[in-house]
Write a protein that binds this DNA or RNA. Structure first.
Length: 418
RNA sequence: GGUGGGGUUCCCGAGCGGUCAAAGGGAGCAGACUGUAAAUCUGCCGGCGAUGCCUUCGAAGGUUCGAUUCCUUCCCCCACCA
């Protein structure tokens, strides 16, 4: 790289260090660098794109890996362009999928996109962010234009992708509409004139498609930056709402902290790296501590939980969540706040306070999904009333004083005698 | 369009006239253990105040004392052929 001035060089190196941190691939790197340099020279922000399909109502830590990278670009003065994939959401991204996604209704997508946006701006600065729905261009697009897009790709190229290849080989159906997904995402880049597009590693194909299509529209192709995939609570599969292994950024401090504590120890480092802002030095130390066994992983995990809670909740919540966790799990005490129910509310649920059938109480108050489950929990030894384990599935009692019901490790209910 | 093979409980997958709420595995839940998690072991794993009753095996009909199992039609998937 050649620089016109030392200032330029300095600014570029500053930006590049931030941009490239944590990235898996930058394609093509030289072109990317050239764009950054040009942007500095001409004082013209890069247009950095990332799209999100609102297929589920919550943003989780997995999403934040990309969003936080966007934030870094934003802080460097670049223009963030968020695409809400209302139309791509209808089609459903086949990336990393082993089967066709269920099609959502447009109404569902729109409802999700509202909560999405609210949550995006817990991280990004709204006033400096451009948002587009891709329906803006797809809604009015002529059929022939879709066909034009389709001429730019061959079936062989689409099918060589690992996810499709596997499905094809295993006889799992691939519908034609799924083949269109990458083309749609690619066209988004044309529509908003993207310079850069971000995505998780599994997005590489779609991101590269953007380059192809932009060139077909006589546009300078975008450069791409891919980021690691955050593994979910099970420690195995990617974090995703549909797998139920996610930590939502809108979850309560207590919930968030508890979920962090349940991740496998091996993931502690990755979570610090991908989901928090800890400095490079700290990261190094964490890695060393873990590999040399000179720290109890639990303590690091608590720190991780605290850090994450603080990132998404106002001051002090992290420490509180931690204390709460320690109180309940380490000291096996009661949480400081327990949902309450009084005798009047019980009567409304058709439960007589003078003769409470425990199974019904649990089901009607939502502590168990069905009477059957309640019985199983009782017989299985997971139910305590005032610290007394109840094992009789037919147990009945009279509510003559305040009592605390505990179901499993973390479900509590205070019964008020009043 | 033709031929063949399929659709089973959250997922995978056995069952092929009664002994089937349906083997086995996975996931999940609870318990024991523990420094959180994991690993391991144990139990549960459609609903019901429950040695019985009710609703399930792609959908609708039919045969039968009895159908997840047999027949018919329909829907969907896969392979090969076109």
């Amino acid at each position: 790289m050649e620089f016109d001035s030392p200032e330029l060089k300095k600014e570029f190196e500053h930006q590049w260090q931030i941009i490239s941190r944590g990235a898996v691939e930058i394609i093509p790197e030289d072109e990317f660098k050239a764009k950054v340099i040009r942007s500095i020279k001409e004082n013209k922000p890069l247009r950095v794109k990332q799209g999100f399909d609102p297929t589920a109502p919550d943003i989780h830590l997995g999403h934040t890996v990309g969003i936080r990278k966007l934030k870094q670009f934003q802080d460097l003065g670049h223009k963030i362009v968020l695409i809400v994939g209302d139309y791509t959401g209808l089609v459903g991204d086949p990336s990393g999928r082993s089967e066709t996604r269920p099609m959502l209704s447009y109404d569902e997508l729109m409802a999700n996109s509202e909560t999405y946006q609210k949550q995006f701006f817990k991280i990004l600065d709204r006033s400096r962010t451009e948002i587009h729905y891709n329906g803006e261009w797809f809604k009015e697009m002529e059929f022939i234009k879709y066909m034009h897009l389709a001429t730019k790709f061959t079936v062989a190229r689409l099918l060589e992708r690992d996810d499709f290849a596997k499905r094809f080989k295993n006889g799992i159906p691939i519908s034609v509409h799924e083949l269109f997904y990458p083309l749609m995402q690619a066209y988004d880049s044309v529509a908003i004139r993207a310079d850069i597009e971000l995505g998780a590693t599994e997005q590489t194909f779609n991101l590269l498609a953007g380059r192809t299509i932009q060139e077909a529209f006589n546009m300078e192709p975008q450069c791409i930056l891919t980021l690691p995939i955050l593994v979910g609570l099970d420690g195995q599969r990617r974090m995703s709402k549909s797998l139920g292994n996610y930590i939502g950024i809108d979850e309560s401090p207590r919930e968030m902290f508890g979920k962090v504590m349940s991740i496998p120890d091996e993931q502690i480092y990755h979570y610090f790296e991908l989901a928090t802002d800890v400095s490079l030095e700290e990261l190094k130390k964490i890695r060393a501590d873990l590999s040399q066994n000179n720290i109890n992983p639990m303590d690091l995990k608590k720190k991780l939980g605290e850090t994450l809670v603080d990132m998404y909740h106002p001051g002090g919540s992290g420490a509180e969540a931690r204390q709460e966790f320690e109180r309940i799990f380490s000291q096996k005490q009661l949480p400081d706040e327990i949902p309450e129910i009084d005798s009047r509310q019980l009567i409304e649920l058709e439960i007589k306070p003078e003769a409470i059938y425990l199974v019904h109480l649990m089901t009607k108050t939502g502590l168990s999904k069905s009477n059957g489950e309640a019985r199983k929990l009782i017989v299985g030894g997971g139910v305590y009333l005032d610290n007394q384990r109840i094992t009789d599935p037919d147990f009945e009692f009279k509510l003559s004083r305040d009592m605390v019901l505990k179901v499993g490790k973390r479900r509590f209910l205070k019964l008020k005698a009043k």
